[in-house]
Design a protein around this nucleic acid. Structure first.
Lengths: 359, 359
DNA sequence: GTGAAAGCGCTAACAA
DNA sequence: TTGTTAGCGCTTTCAC
């Protein structure tokens, strides 16, 4: 059996042109829905396309177009492990995308700071930037800046925390309400028949992701675990020092805290407090984001489960989505859905946040 | 600010040729490590490459080469939802890969049947096939067939169930021992302080994935939950009818079964039994693979948690890995690591196994 | 309205 | 050992 029999030649625009009895240029015009072709000719071409089962080679098309994608990621400048990982993943991706005619750059902006974010958004040069991925708070000035970008033809996606009231093209991140629900269910079941109080450690109620998690958490707690009393949130602003100072008081106010939900980026402060305070009978702890720190705590049994989102997936997905939006091509929703990962000691992936490439 | 200032031109082989003062062909020879270039010239070229920070445009290279990848997936012909999803994902991917010069075809082979698999492996035409992804049992004849394929230059990856004793290039799937451990930990914690017996429903001890899960499960049960007694495995061969027949006897032998680990593709039989037997005090159930059936059972509370692997990720990863192996290019290990997904009612993704593409 | 021809970045004959 | 040239599939002037 000869190779060419096995591999039926893929039709190209040349084949279409031949079958439709028109020129390459005309086929191209039809393919790209450009004007200036007689209706009858369009039909002929479409006929040939259908007949031959033609699919366009996107790589060749991009090559000919000389198209280069230019994307900007705007991330909070806070220092925490999740953000660090997110940025590292972005840098790594930027590197490997160079060979795919795609430039990715990262801009950092003070966290929880709508003004700084708005300023940065205003600096975006719509002529040179095809898409922006934003991880930041949802305020009216941010919404306006997004609207402005969109009006100038820039694709905008929200990252990690959604900005649904804006007209961003897409949200790349987990369903944070569901994530909060998941934390509640896990905490409730792990606590089993016991009864007592639950402490919720959050970051900022300005952050939509934090807010949504709390919402989902409360919903399930109220519905399924009435024997557990959820205390008011401790707003730690993702600041380890602040958290370490706030915790002792919060815990001494209530003697029977048997569970803790660390719903934002406050793991470091929490774990420091555990260590410094001497580990009394540890409460059951559910935390967010798998990082070197939470991984270790999971191993040690200081944290019982971690709800997470894959930072590599987040950035890859953001780029794929922005490319698709720019090209006006379809999105594979299944592939772009960011999973709410649940990790316990047993299913943690092997460590090495950014794995080096191997052959 | 003009566009061309913002977008520094990416260097091409033309630039390299100019700077190194050689021809395009020579640059190409160096880039592809082809022989017949003086050492001194090689240096000059490499110098220029480093100087300009050149990265090769893979799409253009593949276009010029006229390269077309041809991959074959060999899947068990059993009828179960996971397999169905896996095949559907493969078909969908095959479709979308057409525009990327990659052909993917699927061959189905009787499950748990090394002879049938070996026969099919022998039929592979090494001249036309670049890579094979195999989901099947590990026997010596299978190993031999894989060795033969590899000797003929075909890339081989094992899928879902590893075949480590063979010299397959890569394994695409979860760590099944860790998956078993995860199931045990979850079951143990959900069962909380209670004590009683655990039933393990498996498929075939010929299947390496099933075996490994049992191993991991037993390990954690013995270590962390001595109050729970794990009974001998029920080998249901992933056959709903057989399972439905086996279960009543197994359960009547032991009055105090409080937990069930459905470790293979036996969910259908198990759930049918639950329904027909009238739901007495349901045991805690941990199952594998998120499918329409297990999803519903999770909603209903018939199943408490599902350990899963993403079928879309599996097939996409298999293709990426095979391509990388064929091209002898690096693999992003983080991206290709298949996660052990844990699903409870709260973090299930919205349904729709294969999402249609949307714009 | 339509077509001919040049060219995107790279590879692969074939010459020299 | 090196260079010239045609061409991969598609887009884009520019001419007819």
């Amino acid at each position: 059996m000869s190779p060419n029999l096995m591999t039926p030649e893929t039709p190209t625009i040349n084949d279409i042109a031949r079958v439709a009895e028109v020129s390459l240029a005309t086929v191209d015009r039809v393919l790209n829905a450009r004007p200036g072709v007689r209706e009858k000719t369009v039909e002929k071409v479409n006929q040939a396309i259908a007949e031959l089962g033609y699919v366009r080679d996107t790589a060749a098309a991009n090559l000919a177009r000389g198209r280069v994608y230019n994307f900007v990621f705007i991330l909070p400048s806070n220092k925490n492990e999740f953000l660090h990982s997110l940025e590292a993943q972005t840098e790594q991706l930027a590197q490997s995308l160079r060979r795919e005619r795609t430039r990715v750059s990262v801009v950092r902006v003070a966290g929880f700071d709508p003004v700084a974010l708005t300023d940065e958004l205003k600096k975006i040069d719509a002529l040179n930037v095809d898409g922006v991925a934003i991880f930041g708070p949802e305020t009216s000035s941010v919404r306006d800046s997004i609207a402005h970008l969109k009006a100038n033809g820039v694709t905008v996606v929200s990252l990690v925390a959604d900005i649904p009231s804006s007209d961003r093209d897409h949200y790349v991140g987990v369903d944070n309400i569901a994530a909060g629900r998941t934390a509640a269910q896990l905490l409730g079941r792990f606590l089993a028949p016991r009864q007592g109080k639950i402490l919720v450690l959050t970051g900022s109620m300005l952050a939509r992701d934090h807010l949504e998690r709390r919402l989902g958490f409360d919903e399930i707690m109220a519905r399924d675990f009435p024997q557990l009393e959820v205390l008011a949130s401790l707003e730690g602003r993702d600041d380890p020092d602040l958290i370490e100072r706030l915790l002792p008081r919060a815990l001494s106010d209530h003697s029977d805290v048997i569970g803790i939900y660390s719903s934002a980026a406050g793991n470091e402060g929490l774990l420091r407090f555990f260590k410094s305070s001497g580990v009394r009978e540890n409460p059951v702890v559910i935390a967010h984001e798998l990082t070197p720190l939470s991984r270790r705590a999971l191993s040690d049994g200081m944290i019982d489960a971690v709800i997470s989102q894959d930072s590599g997936h987040l950035v890859r997905s953001a780029v794929r989505v922005m490319r698709a939006k720019v090209d006006n091509s379809p999105i594979n929703t299944a592939q772009e859905r960011i999973r709410i990962d649940v990790y316990i000691r047993e299913n943690m992936p092997p460590d090495g946040e950014i794995q080096e490439n191997q052959t």
